[in-house]
Amino acid sequence: MSQADLTPVPVETPTSQPWEPRIIAFLCYWCSYTGADNAGTSRLKYPANVDIIRVMCSGRIDPDLIMTAFAQGADGVMVCGCHIGDCHYIAGNHKTMTRMPLLSRVLQDFGIEPERFVHEWVSAAEGDKFAKLVRQVTEQVRQVGRLDWPGRMYRRGVGHGEDLQPWGDQA
């Protein structure tokens, strides 16, 4: 675990392309993913900034995955599950419902704005809601700007010793 952190994270080289928000969306299989599918089959347009990860139930989305997404460079994270009462596993989203607001508080303590982390219920029929949500989240993440957590941490000197004073063993 720890040794892996020693590998310097490459700083993203500036390209000529303008920055686009990169958003990771965790969607539960039974409602929200089908909802996203519904948006597709209804030919609704939404920004291509979102990378969808399908999980069986929103209750299986470990907060660690969300933290890791940010730590590895996501600008925003969305978590969607069935409406309360509709979870395929009955109470899976009850856990989502308590974990996500708590996680949101923790993320803010680390300096990640609430705009970057959104949790919402999307049913299988709510393709339009999903498309609208993606548009809204993409826009609000664009407003708060680039997060670039790996680059930030790298530039702070995390795990790649900097500025060593030439004293001690040579003194």
């Binding site: 933290m67 940010f70 303590d109 680390f110 957590w149 941490m153 702070r156």
Partner: peptide
């Protein structure tokens, strides 16, 4: 040891 390790400021 956390994923985020520190505040971003």
């Amino acid at each position: 040891s956390s994923a985020l390790k520190a505040h971003r400021k």
